[in-house]
Amino acid sequence: MFKRAAALVVSCGAVLAGCGTDPRIENQEIISNLVEAGFPADDIRVVEEAVYVGRDAHVTLEASREMLQPGEGSAEHYRNANLVGTSVTKICVNPTSMFSSYTRLSEGLDLALANYNALGLRITFARGPTTGCTANITAQATTGTGGTAGFPSGGYPYGTINIGTGLQSYSVDVNEHVITHELGHAIGLHHSDYYDRSISCGTGGSEVFPGLGPVHIPGTPTTATLGGSIMNTCFPGNTTGEFTSSDITALQYLY
């Protein structure tokens, strides 16, 4: 998630846990799997030994292997082949002490969790530490004015969202928007304007090949518009941080 029309480079502290395996070898397989799944090579980047697609979505080796299954077409709202399983009912988002020290990031997190909990989904979100968690996500601070996350794997949400401390100088609504967006990735949502990032960013081409990899969510629009989804690639400065009607349709269909 990036500010509209800003040319930013993903920078975060994500490092692949290779369990003794050379990260470069794992990354080669991840990239190969992504290309096979339909992601163009020029949309894949390696930052600090971690592989990213679509600017802000970290892909692990396990997740890349799970992506190698047939897609079902694509449109404005779409999801990853991997979703959060039914065994997960309460996702606890645990901010680090550094994250919580930034007041607007901290307030934005509370508002983002409220966005999801207002929808009556089968999964609920809670700010940790707390009890009864069936899955956990760590919210940590990083540099810049955007965020990064990843896609679900093994039936669990991606375990980390990275939020730029530069967002402290933006409104609470912007912080709410970026955190809601990255949590969307963590439970399986892709960018709404994947086929033309210039819709929300002002510049940029397609993110993935249409018809390959993404799975369309029934009932959602077939075209993206500026401000039409919290899952657009870039955020507008005047965002309210709230879900649009099509966002709600997508989430209620999935969860």
Rank of each mutant, 00 (worst) to 15 (best):
E76P: 04
T145F: 05
A135K: 12
N82E: 13
L111W: 00
Y170P: 00
G211E: 08
T180S: 14
Y158E: 08
G120F: 09
P157M: 00
T142A: 07
F125I: 04
N115W: 08
Q140F: 06
S192D: 14
G150S: 09
G150Q: 04
H181G: 04
G73C: 09
T89L: 03
L183W: 07
G159K: 08
A135P: 10
E207C: 05
G128R: 06
C201H: 00
R79T: 15
G108Q: 04
E182L: 05
V88L: 11
N136D: 14
L111I: 02
S106I: 05
G155V: 03
T143P: 10
R197T: 10
S169W: 01
V93K: 06
H190K: 07
S74V: 14
L109W: 01
G120Y: 12
E76L: 14
H191E: 02
L212E: 15
S97E: 14
V172T: 08
S198E: 01
Y116H: 10
L121H: 10
P214M: 13
I137F: 07
E76W: 15
Y195F: 11
F125E: 13
S200M: 01
G202H: 02
E76Y: 14
I187Q: 07
S153L: 03
A139K: 07
D110I: 01
R104H: 06
L121K: 11
R122V: 06
L83T: 15
F125R: 13
L167A: 06
A149H: 07
L109T: 10
I91V: 13
F125Y: 14
H216Y: 11
Y116G: 07
L111S: 02
G184R: 04
S74I: 12
F99A: 11
V84H: 06
L167G: 10
A112F: 03
T89M: 09
R122G: 12
T148G: 05
Q140T: 15
I163Q: 02
G144D: 03
I199E: 04
G155Q: 00
P129K: 03
